[in-house]
Write a protein that binds this DNA or RNA. Structure first.
Length: 152
DNA sequence: GCCAACGTTGGC
DNA sequence: GCCAACGTTGGC
């Protein structure tokens, strides 16, 4: 069992949007960063636990928990000329971008703000807290996961 | 292979 | 809106 954190701008796709999907499941499409892709393509397993993080908003922070719902597969938006995520360099025979489906588990009891996470010494070294970090998908250790859940 | 220019992310 | 950090692109 692995643990992850995935960012989304709530203006574009929020935890509430995910919760209201009929299946409460959504393909995490549009990721165009190789490191983030590699995590999804190579390391995410069904049942892995994921923090849903809201970025670029009034109170950036962890807002909920979801899980990996399926094995990775090529991101179809890369093949679609009408998609804003279209990438002409990605071909169905040799796909460049991959994604996983994620399923809503629950909201956290409250938003756990980024500013608060920064105050906790045991979370020092978290990739999320590194200055200038722009990675949208990153691993979380079990220790960090458990510690953060106790902050709820 | 180097690196300047440029675009994007995302906190503040 | 500002700007630091960082990834990508493309000329050489």
């Amino acid at each position: 069992m692995n643990y992850w954190l995935m960012k989304s701008e709530p203006n574009a796709f929020s935890i509430d949007d995910l919760a209201h999907r009929s299946d409460q499941t959504e393909p995490w499409d549009g990721v165009r960063n190789y490191q983030a892709r590699n995590f999804m393509r190579d390391q995410m397993k069904v049942g892995d636990q994921v923090f849903f993080y809201h970025s670029n908003c009034d109170v950036p922070g962890i807002v909920g928990i979801m899980e990996v719902a399926g094995k990775s597969y090529p991101d179809p938006t890369a093949f679609d000329p009408h998609s804003k995520y279209f990438d002409p360099k990605s071909h169905p025979a040799d796909p460049r971008w991959f994604l996983v489906d994620v399923k809503y588990c629950r909201h956290t009891r409250r938003i756990i703000p980024l500013a608060e996470l920064k105050e906790h010494e045991p979370l020092e070294g978290m990739q999320l807290l590194r200055k200038g970090n722009r990675l949208s998908i990153m691993p979380v250790t079990k220790k960090q996961w458990d510690y953060i859940l106790r902050l709820e």
